[in-house]
Design a protein around this nucleic acid. Structure first.
Length: 853
RNA sequence: GGGCGGCUAGCUCAGUUGGUUAGAGCGUCACAUUGACAUUGUGAAGGUCAGAGGUUCGAAUCCUCUGCCGCCCACCA
C-alpha cells in the first residue's frame, strides 16, 4: 500500500492474515534464516496446548506475552527460536473422546477395543491440532513451525523410552504394589495432583467392632472397616496405652472376621473423635503409611470396579461402596454397636477429568523414586534435592519471586510419582514380560512370547522432557540441543507450576544435568469482568477468535498484556479490548498524518533539531527508548506498554504533531519520520500486525527483523524542563478560557509576561488557539480584559493560591527541621528546595495577578 | 491445620530495594470541533493508600495485631 492510500480507519481483518502469511514465507520465524551475525541466542518452548479442543483466553495471554519476548529478542539481534507443539494430554483427550463416543453411540472404549479407540482419538487429536495451529497464527505468534513437535510423535516416543530405560537401570523407576489413587470412572490410576477435593456432607459413625472390643473408633466410611487390620492411637494417650501391642483375633464383623492389632502412632490426633483410628491399610494413603511403619497386614476389600471384593465377606461382596456403606451401617445399628452418628463436612477426593470418586486401592504400578538417594558429581542427591537446588542456587529464577516458596513446598513434599496409567492413549510403558522375565528397552526384545505392558505413561512424563526432546535429545550431538538448551525462559500460568514446571525440572536436572530454563515467568488467570472464572456454565466466556475478528489481534494482545502483572489474575472485558482497538487506530492515524504530510519518506542520516519542540521530542524519545528497553528486558511488559502508549499518544501525537503543523517542513519532516520509525519498532513486539502494515507503506523491509532502536544521546532534562514551561503556559491559557466560558478561542487575546515565553509565541498561539500574544509587564499570563469574568477568575486564583501556600509553608517547616536536613540524603533535600522555590515563585505570580484584578 | 496473595480515585489496576503535592486507563462533568484520528482533542472533579499500633527526620512501601475477600497445599480417620 502507498502511504497516500491509507484509509481513515484501521481495519485489522483486511491485513492480518496476509501479513502472517508473508512472515511465514519469509522464513524468519526459523532462526537459521535470520540475517546478520547472531552470537547470542534466545530460546523458548511454547507450552504445548492440549489437543482437546480450542484455545481460550488463557492461551491467548500466553501467546501474547511469549510473542512479545520473542519479537523483542529477535529485533535485538539474538538468534531467536520459539518452538511450537501440542500435547497429547493422555487423560484429558481420552476422557473427552470417551465422552463423545458414549454420547453419540452409547459405547465405551472397551466396547470398540484398543485399536479402534486409538484411531478415533488420533482423528480427534488431529482436528484439534489443526484448529490450535490456526489460532496461534491468528494471534500473530512468530513460532518456528518447521520445528513443530507433538508430545506423542515418534521422536518424542523414542526419547521417552530412552529416559524410562535409563531411570529404570539407575533404580529410580520401579514397579511396586502400592496404594494408589484409583479413578473408577476413568478406570485408571491418577497422580496426587490430578485429584480435586469437593466438599460434601457425610455421616460420621462412632462404633466398636464388637461389644467386647475395648476401643471405639469413628469413620465416614464404615464399608471399608471390613478391611481394617489395626487400631492406631497416639503414643501419649493414656486412655489406650494398656492396649497398645495387643492383637484381637478373628473378631466377627459385618459378615466376616477381622484381626485387629493396637498400635501407637504419632500421626493420630488424640483430640479427634475417640482418639482412636481404625486402620485400613489397603484403602487409605495415610493408613497405608501407618501400616508400613508397623508392619501391618493389608487386606483389599474394594476392587477396581468400585465394588466390594470377595474378601470383604458375603454380607457386602459385590455391592458398590455406597450401598455397602449403608449395609454395614445397618448391621452396626442392629448389633447395637453404634455409639454416635453425626453429620459432618467432608472433602471428597474426585478425579479432575472424569469426576469419579477416588478410591485408594493397592495396585501393581510403575513409580518414580523421587526421594531415593544417588550419587551425582560426588554428592549424594535425590531428584527432589536436585529440583530444589536448581532454584535455590539461582540457576533458575521464578517471576514473581514469591512463587519460589510455593515451588519449594512442592519439591519438599513430593511423594513417589505413579507414572503408569491404564489408558490407551499415551506412551506405552516400554517394558515387556515373558513368564518371570522382564525386559525394559527402547524397542521390543528379540524372541517370541513377549508381551508389552498394557499401560501408558502419565502425560507429564513426556511433557516434563519438552525443552530438550524438541531440540533433538537423546542425540547429544544435535546442533539445536547444543545451541538452544538451556532455554532462556519458560512462560506459563501459575496453575501449571506443580503439574509441569516441577516435572520439567525433575526430568531435566536428572537426565541432562542442567536446568531446563533460566527464568520461569508465571502469568495469572484471565477472569471475566466480575472476577469469575470463565466457564461454559456461567456463559461468560470471551473467545479470543471472536475478539480478533471484531477488534483485531493487536488490540486483543494489548488488552491481555497491559494492566496485568505476573502471577496475578486479570479481569477482561470486551470494553477493554475495544479501548485498545481505539489505540491501534490512533497509531494508524498518527502514521497516516506523518506519512501524508511529509514531502518524502527518506530519512537523512543526521537529524538536526531546530526548535525547542524538536529537541524536546527527541529527548523524550531517547528517554522512552531507554526505559522501555529496560522494562522489556526485565519482563515488565505492562509497564513498558504503558510508557510507550504515554509517549506515543501524549508526547508525540498530542504535542509534537500539533506543533509540527506550524513548523518548517524541511526541518521537521526528518524528525517526524525518525520518531515514527522508532515508534513502529518499539510497538512491533506488542502489536505486530498494525506496525508491520504501516511499515510496509513507507519501507521496503520487513519490520519483524528490523533492529531494535538505540538511543541517540538526545536525552536532555534541561530541554524537557524548558518545554514544560511552555506547556504550562498553554495549559493555563486554555484553562482560563474554559473557566471563563468566553466562547471560541479566536476571539481571545493573551498577554504573556515572561520574555522567555515570547520566544515560543507562535507555538503558544497555535496550540492555545489565541489570536494575539504580547509581552506584558506583569508576571504570569493574563487574558486581555474585556471578556474576562472577573469574579470567576478571582475565585480560581484564590483556590490555587491557598493550595500553593499550604504546600510552601509545610515544605518550609520540613526544611527548617534540623534533624531532617541532617539525616535525609542531599538529593532529597535539594529536590525539596527547588520544588519549594518553584511553588513560591508561582505563588508570587498568582498574588500579583490577584492584585491586578 | 500450613502457606500465599489482595484491600490505593466510581470501575480496572500501577506504584522496583522507605524520600516528601500518590499515578494511569476507563467512566463522570465542562469545554472544543470543517483537514491524521469522534475509534477525536483540552481541562476539571474525585484518594485520611482496609483499620489500629510501632520503627523512622520521613511510611501506600518496613514490623506487630485486627478485619474482610480470594487462592494453593494438607485431608480429621
Amino acid at each position: 500500500m502507498e502511504r497516500n492510500d491509507m484509509p481513515k480507519a484501521y481495519d485489522a481483518k483486511q491485513y492480518e492474515d496476509r501479513i502472517y502469511s508473508a512472515w511465514e514465507e519469509s522464513g524468519f520465524f526459523n532462526p537459521d534464516n535470520l540475517p546478520g551475525e547472531r552470537s547470542e541466542t534466545f530460546s523458548m518452548v511454547l507450552p504445548p496446548p492440549n489437543v482437546t479442543g480450542t484455545l481460550h483466553m488463557g492461551h491467548a495471554v500466553m501467546l501474547a506475552i511469549e510473542d512479545i519476548m520473542v519479537r523483542f529478542a529477535r529485533m535485538r539481534g539474538k538468534k531467536t527460536l520459539w518452538v511450537p507443539g501440542t500435547d497429547h494430554a493422555a487423560i484429558a483427550t481420552s476422557t473427552k473422546v470417551e465422552k463423545i463416543l458414549f454420547k453419540t453411540e452409547g459405547k465405551t472404549r472397551h466396547d470398540i477395543g484398543r485399536e479402534a479407540f486409538l484411531r478415533r482419538v488420533e482423528t480427534f487429536a488431529q482436528d484439534s491440532h489443526d484448529t490450535i495451529v490456526n489460532q496461534c497464527k491468528k494471534m500473530g505468534a512468530s513460532l518456528d513451525w518447521s520445528r513443530e513437535a507433538y508430545t506423542l510423535d515418534a521422536k518424542r516416543n523414542h526419547a521417552v523410552n530412552v529416559a524410562f530405560k535409563k531411570m529404570y537401570d539407575d533404580g529410580l523407576i520401579y514397579r511396586g504394589n502400592r496404594v494408589i489413587n484409583w479413578d473408577p470412572i476413568g478406570q485408571t490410576t491418577i497422580s496426587d495432583i490430578e485429584i480435586v477435593y469437593k466438599e460434601v456432607e457425610a455421616t460420621l459413625y462412632t462404633f466398636r467392632y464388637a461389644k467386647d472390643f475395648p476401643i471405639a473408633i469413628s469413620t465416614t466410611r464404615p464399608e471399608t472397616k471390613v478391611g481394617d487390620t489395626a487400631v492406631a492411637v497416639h503414643p501419649d494417650d493414656e486412655r489406650y496405652s494398656s492396649f497398645v501391642g495387643k492383637t484381637f483375633e478373628n473378631i466377627p464383623f459385618a459378615g466376616t472376621t477381622i484381626t485387629i492389632t493396637v498400635v501407637a502412632d504419632k500421626e493420630v490426633d488424640p483430640a479427634f473423635g475417640t482418639g482412636a483410628l481404625g486402620v485400613t491399610p489397603a484403602h487409605s494413603l495415610v493408613d497405608a503409611d501407618i501400616a508400613a511403619r508397623h508392619g501391618l497386614a493389608m487386606k483389599q476389600v474394594i476392587g477396581a470396579d468400585g465394588r466390594m471384593t470377595e474378601d470383604a465377606g458375603p454380607l457386602v461382596a459385590g455391592q458398590t461402596t455406597v450401598n455397602a456403606r449403608e449395609t454395614v451401617a445397618s448391621w452396626l445399628r442392629e448389633q447395637g454397636l453404634v455409639e454416635g452418628e453425626e453429620k459432618t463436612a467432608q472433602n471428597l477426593a474426585t478425579a479432575e477429568r472424569s469426576g469419579g470418586t477416588i478410591e485408594p486401592i493397592p495396585m501393581l504400578q510403575w513409580f518414580m523414586a523421587v526421594r531415593k538417594e544417588f550419587e551425582r558429581q560426588g554428592k549424594t542427591v535425590t531428584m527432589c534435592s536436585l529440583m530444589r537446588d536448581a532454584v535455590e542456587s539461582g540457576k533458575t529464577k521464578i517471576i514473581p519471586e514469591r512463587f519460589e516458596k510455593t515451588y519449594f513446598q512442592w519439591t519438599d513434599t513430593l511423594r513417589d510419582w505413579n507414572v503408569s496409567r491404564q489408558l490407551w492413549y499415551g506412551h506405552r510403558v516400554p517394558v515387556w514380560y515373558r513368564n518371570d522375565e522382564i525386559f525394559v528397552g527402547t524397542e521390543a526384545p528379540e524372541g517370541d512370547g513377549w508381551t508389552q505392558d498394557p499401560d501408558t505413561l502419565d502425560t507429564w512424563f513426556s511433557a516434563g522432557m519438552w525443552t530438550f526432546t524438541t531440540l533433538g535429545w537423546p542425540d547429544l550431538d544435535s546442533a539445536d540441543l547444543r545451541t538452544y538448551h538451556t532455554t532462556s525462559v519458560l512462560e506459563t500460568g501459575y496453575d501449571i507450576l506443580f503439574f509441569w514446571v516441577v516435572r520439567m525440572m525433575l526430568m531435566t536436572t536428572y537426565l541432562m544435568d542442567e536446568v531446563p530454563f533460566k527464568t520461569v515467568y508465571l502469568h495469572g488467570l484471565v477472569r471475566d469482568e466480575q472476577g469469575r472464572k470463565m466457564s461454559k456454565s456461567l456463559d461468560n466466556i470471551i473467545n479470543p477468535l471472536d475478539m480478533i475478528a471484531k477488534y483485531g489481534a493487536d488490540a486483543t494482545r494489548l488488552s491481555l498484556v497491559i494492566g496485568s502483572t505476573p502471577g496475578n489474575d486479570t479481569k477482561l472485558s470486551e470494553e477493554k479490548i475495544a479501548g485498545y482497538r481505539n489505540f491501534t487506530n490512533k497509531l494508524w492515524n498518527i502514521s497516516r498524518f506523518v506519512l501524508t504530510s511529509v514531502e518524502s519518506v527518506g530519512v537523512p542520516e543526521v537529524i538536526v533539531p531546530k526548535t525547542l519542540a524538536d529537541r524536546w521530542i527527541l529527548s523524550r524519545l531517547d528517554a522512552t527508548l531507554a526505559s522501555v528497553t529496560k522494562k522489556l528486558a526485565a519482563y515488565e511488559f505492562s509497564a513498558a506498554g504503558e510508557e510507550l502508549r504515554d509517549f506515543t499518544w501524549n508526547d508525540f501525537a498530542d504535542w509534537y504533531l500539533e506543533i509540527a503543523k506550524i513548523q518548517d517542513r524541511a526541518a521537521t519532516d526528518p524528525i517526524l519520520l525518525h520518531i515514527l520509525e522508532a515508534v513502529m519498532r518499539m510497538w512491533h513486539p506488542f502489536m505486530p500486525f498494525v506496525t508491520e502494515q504501516i511499515w510496509s507503506s513507507f519501507k521496503e523491509t520487513t519490520l519483524m527483523i528490523e533492529a531494535w532502536p538505540v538511543a541517540g544521546g538526545m536525552h536532555d532534562e534541561a530541554v524537557e524542563r524548558e518545554f514544560a514551561v511552555v506547556q504550562e503556559a498553554i495549559v493555563t491559557i486554555r484553562n482560563i478560557r474554559a473557566t471563563q466560558k468566553v466562547g471560541p478561542a479566536k476571539k481571545v487575546s493573551v498577554t504573556v509576561s515572561e520574555a522567555s515565553l515570547l520566544a515560543y509565541a507562535e507555538t503558544i498561539k497555535w496550540l492555545a488557539r489565541v489570536e494575539e500574544l504580547t509581552l506584558g509587564d506583569k508576571q504570569g499570563i493574563q487574558l486581555v480584559l474585556g471578556t474576562m469574568d472577573v469574579e470567576a477568575e478571582h475565585k480560581r486564583l484564590t483556590a490555587e493560591r491557598d493550595q500553593l501556600y499550604a504546600y510552601v509553608t509545610a515544605t518550609e517547616a520540613r526544611l527548617a527541621n534540623a534533624e531532617f536536613t541532617a539525616k535525609a540524603p542531599e538529593t532529597v533535600v535539594a529536590q525539596m528546595r527547588s520544588r519549594r522555590d518553584e511553588a513560591a515563585a508561582k505563588l508570587a505570580a498568582i498574588k500579583a495577578q490577584l492584585d491586578e484584578i
